[in-house]
Simulated scan of single mutants.
Amino acid sequence: MMKIDLLPEEKSPQLMIIPMIDIIFFLLVFFMMSMLSMVVQKSVPLTLPQTASAKVSMTRNIPVTVTADGTLYYEQEPMTLAGLAERLQQDAARGEDISVILRGDEAAAYGKIVQVMDLVKNLGISKVYIATDSKG
């Protein structure tokens, strides 16, 4: 008599590590990209002039904006030139390593931007950057 085995032999489950690594990397990239889109910049929206490269320092960056109509902003707060000087002087007095990012609209008066740069230089702030957009 011939014996027929109706129950197949049970194999132990295998843990496939390569697909799990792929999924983990996919999740890592997904969360990194979603965090980059959540970065908030405290400044007023405007059209920046374009350059081939842009560089930002790792110190405390203070955005100072000059709009097309000549209005000054410290972050998102409108200011006069004297108010801006007082505010920057307070920041410099704290002893932090600060840098000013000057964001001037393309249509802003050149003299107004030079006044702000002169003010920053007179306060002893040596790190002044001019914000631009890169040419696409």
Results as ranks from 00 to 15, higher is better:
residue 118 D to Q: 11
residue 7 L to Y: 12
residue 80 T to R: 00
residue 118 D to C: 02
residue 8 P to H: 05
residue 67 T to V: 05
residue 67 T to G: 03
residue 38 M to Y: 13
residue 20 M to K: 08
residue 20 M to D: 04
residue 9 E to I: 14
residue 57 S to K: 06
residue 136 G to I: 11
residue 92 A to Y: 08
residue 2 M to C: 02
residue 51 T to V: 08
residue 117 M to S: 14
residue 85 A to E: 14
residue 63 P to F: 01
residue 18 I to W: 12
residue 29 V to Q: 03
residue 112 K to C: 05
residue 62 I to N: 03
residue 90 Q to Y: 08
residue 21 I to W: 04
residue 110 Y to S: 14
residue 11 K to P: 00
residue 115 Q to F: 02
residue 59 T to N: 12
residue 94 R to A: 10
residue 8 P to M: 04
residue 52 A to W: 06
residue 1 M to T: 12
residue 116 V to P: 01
residue 104 G to T: 08
residue 71 T to G: 00
residue 126 S to E: 09
residue 55 K to I: 09
residue 72 L to R: 06
residue 46 L to M: 07
residue 71 T to K: 13
residue 122 N to K: 14
residue 126 S to N: 09
residue 125 I to Q: 05
residue 47 T to N: 12
residue 105 D to L: 01
residue 130 I to D: 01
residue 118 D to G: 07
residue 41 Q to P: 03
residue 103 R to W: 03
residue 90 Q to F: 03
residue 129 Y to I: 10
residue 4 I to F: 13
residue 120 V to F: 01
residue 88 L to C: 00
residue 80 T to D: 00
residue 47 T to I: 13
residue 116 V to A: 04
residue 99 S to P: 03
residue 89 Q to C: 05
residue 87 R to F: 00
residue 88 L to Q: 00
residue 3 K to N: 15
residue 17 I to V: 14
residue 128 V to L: 11
residue 128 V to F: 00
residue 26 F to H: 02
residue 5 D to A: 15
residue 55 K to M: 07
residue 76 Q to T: 15
residue 50 Q to T: 13
residue 42 K to F: 13
residue 32 M to Q: 09
residue 87 R to S: 12
residue 63 P to I: 06
residue 70 G to E: 02
residue 74 Y to C: 00
residue 17 I to Q: 06
residue 80 T to G: 04
residue 40 V to W: 13
residue 31 F to I: 11
residue 57 S to P: 04
residue 26 F to Y: 09
residue 75 E to W: 04
residue 95 G to H: 05
residue 36 L to Q: 14
residue 39 V to M: 13
residue 78 P to Y: 05
residue 66 V to L: 02
residue 21 I to A: 12
residue 8 P to N: 08
residue 104 G to P: 00
residue 18 I to M: 10
residue 10 E to C: 07
residue 87 R to I: 05
residue 103 R to M: 10
residue 57 S to I: 01
residue 56 V to K: 04
